[in-house]
């Protein structure tokens, strides 16, 4: 980044006057809600004390409660599987498509733009469309499978398939992001490298593994890490498609936290906030790794 010496001298009240609104905003609408969330997780709240205050301090009781909850193990496993499976497929497919569209054929720009559509749609639109497509009796997916001689799959209602279903929908939503970012990374690779490789008789496969893949490593690392942070907090798709069910078979930390706090008639805000805070810790760990890598690359 360019330093602007002549115009802006460092420091100065004027600069902070411009920054004051956003700073106050961050304190009031980021720091304070987060503080309230930590506070929620450390107290024994009932509906009454939630409204009127005066909930007794409970220390780490809520955390102990969720760690020993039978949902904890499955939720952790599903969060990990959901994240890793989504990332692996989104990234591989996104990479393949980026390389494909990088060849510049007629209509390539238009088609690449159309690939953005799934990413721009409201998640509730995508999730409800997939719900209907994966419907056991009337869904188009089972109709297609039936035509191929494969028996109907209870995508959303069987505990064996619910997690796979939400992963499939999430992969579909995540492909555009991977495609666009990796494509912009490809554009930064000098074309002369490929020409030289062609002259040396390299095949397309070799060109990918020897040139594209190594040179794209920094962009790939950032794409994967951002994808990881985004995927950890996916909530809408799972909640709308399966509500984390049946019997917790697609519950992740995000949906579990929501269900504890808002999904039942008797809300359990303390444990809900505790699950949320665990999720935040996971996101921040990867967030800090992301920032470290990014700093190193663009320093």
């Amino acid at each position: 980044m360019r330093r602007s010496r002549a115009y802006g001298h460092r420091g100065g009240w004027a600069a902070w006057a411009f920054l004051a609104p956003v700073t106050l905003y961050l304190l009031a609408f980021y720091a304070y809600p987060l503080y309230r969330n930590v506070e929620l997780s450390l107290r024994e709240y009932t509906v009454r004390s939630f409204v009127q205050g005066g909930a007794p301090f409970a220390g780490l009781d809520n955390y102990a409660k969720i760690l020993s909850d039978p949902t904890f193990g499955p939720a952790l496993l599903h969060t990990v599987v959901f994240t890793l499976a989504s990332l692996a497929f989104q990234f591989t497919i996104g990479m393949a498509l980026a390389v494909f569209f990088h060849q510049h054929f007629p209509l390539s720009g238009t088609l690449r733009a159309l690939f953005l559509v799934p990413w721009l749609l409201p998640l509730i639109v995508s999730a409800s469309t997939w719900s209907w497509m994966l419907n056991s009796d009337a869904g188009v997916v089972n109709a297609a499978l039936g035509a191929a001689g494969i028996g109907p799959v209870n995508w959303l209602t069987s505990p064996d398939w619910s997690l796979a279903s939400v992963i499939i929908a999430n992969i579909w939503i995540g492909i555009p992001f991977n495609l666009v970012v990796l494509y912009s990374g490809l554009q930064a690779i000098p074309g002369t490298l490929y020409e030289a490789a062609s002259l040396d008789g390299a095949t397309g496969w070799q060109r990918f593994w020897r040139i594209t893949f190594p040179l794209l490593r920094p962009v790939s690392a950032i794409t994967l890490l951002l994808g990881l942070i985004y995927t950890l907090k996916v909530f809408d798709i799972i909640w709308i498609m399966t509500r984390g069910g049946p019997t917790d078979s697609s519950t992740t930390f995000a949906t579990w936290s929501y269900r504890l706090g808002f999904g039942n008639l008797l809300p359990a805000f303390g444990p809900g906030a505790a699950v949320g805070n665990l999720l935040i810790v996971m996101a921040l760990v990867f967030g800090l790794i992301y920032i470290r890598i990014q700093r190193r690359q663009y320093a």
Binding site: R36, N37, L40, K233, S257, A273, I280, F286, G287, I291
Partner: peptide
């Protein structure tokens, strides 16, 4: 401040929602 803004982007929505709910209530 830039660093804080980067971190802020990574906070899951469900956590913000719960904090906001308590405050708004």
């Amino acid at each position: 401040l830039s660093f804080v803004l980067l971190i802020a982007q990574m906070i899951p929505g469900i956590i913000m929602a719960m904090g906001f709910y308590a405050i708004y209530l």
